[in-house]
Amino acid sequence: MSTTVQAEPHTTAQRTATNEFVSYPHDIPHRVEHDAETHRLRIEGGPHSTTWQLGQSAGQLALTWPAGSTPRREATLAAIDAAFAFHPEAQWLQLQGPKAMYPALRHTGIVVDDSEGVPWVPAELFWQQPGLWLPSPRPLPYPQQPVLSAGKRHPRRPPKPEGTVYRRHIPWLKATLSFRVLDLEHDLERFSRWMNDPVVAHFWEEQGDLAQHRHRLEATLSHPNALPLIACFDDQPFGYFEAYWAKEDRLGAYYDADDFDRGWHLLIGEAAFRGTPYVAAWLPSISHYLFLDDCRTQRLVIEPRVDNAKMLHNLARCGYAHLKAFDFPHKRAMLGMQLREHFFNERSWIPQPPHPGSAPRPGPRFSQ
């Protein structure tokens, strides 16, 4: 048995190499080493280390537990997570292990059986498991109660979370991407500097001093519709994301908004993080987070300016459809939309080529 992993979730990823991956099942860091020659996955996390075999079975990706005992649940999830990371083209993973481990995995939708009773892990279902990427997922969806605000009828929204809300290791960057709720005193000066950056100001048009930006953020934090987030790579802040419920947002008047549609705005404040490898990480990840945050969210929307060609291009590569151009009072915008079914069915957490980390899309899917 190996010793307990000493690194904290925020620092583990900094020591990863090309054949290493970090998974965070139930917010416990698991470092996974992939030995391509022996087809082994060595997983270190919690009190023990475990080893799985990762190879091919009848031409399909297969993850096999070689020991007689039942593997720990967190280590099993980390192994599955890493297997899909090392084989991003895979849509299905055959899971081979003791029968005792399957009932709980079937119950949560991680494992499904084909017509012959063989257990498989569909990537489409696995990536909808909040416990792999959300440090504190809600145990159940927030109960529904219709309320009125500013003349708009919508479901009562849940209390805002605190701290880190999403964490994902990005293999091509060898770093961990995270979103945390904005802290006014800690982030105000940084936010103000970003807003006064010429590149950001061109699209946001919210230049100002600290007092103006404090007032703006206080209003955002107090509004139940909006969730301000700071995006980080290995805990280094690089951007601001603002998630909102579309039903009661100004955008809701420009299309037929459903009760649980979510939208988002963003700015990348640090120039060093504006390249394609970073876009390929944060753009699918903000979508992933919003879909995981509430299983009733079926659509994501965004309304960039119609002249923001780079953003429109990147949205298309990450599964967003451009539905229509329309006129806000302050700008002409493009309505972009991502469907939950499309995101998970097409594995849009990996952008289409030529983005880093992308993989060729395979042919016909495995059918049950």
Rank of each mutant, 00 (worst) to 15 (best):
D235M: 14
Q94W: 11
Y166H: 12
S222E: 14
E206I: 10
F21N: 02
L335Y: 00
S149K: 10
R274M: 03
D307I: 05
Y320K: 01
S192N: 12
T64S: 12
I230G: 00
R332K: 03
H26E: 14
R180H: 01
E346L: 08
T220E: 09
D259N: 13
W172V: 10
P119T: 14
L134Q: 14
R72I: 01
T16W: 00
V118H: 08
H202S: 13
D27C: 12
T4N: 00
D234I: 03
R168H: 08
L41T: 04
R347L: 07
R106D: 14
I302E: 03
A85I: 03
A13Q: 02
P304T: 11
S358H: 12
Q53P: 04
E8H: 08
H213N: 03
L266Y: 09
A17G: 15
P143Q: 09
V147S: 13
K152Y: 12
K160N: 00
A257V: 13
S178N: 11
E124R: 09
T18E: 08
W282Q: 09
A201L: 15
L323A: 00
R193Q: 07
R106Y: 15
I302D: 04
A83Q: 02
R72D: 11
L182A: 01
P25G: 02
D256G: 14
Y102R: 11
Q338M: 10
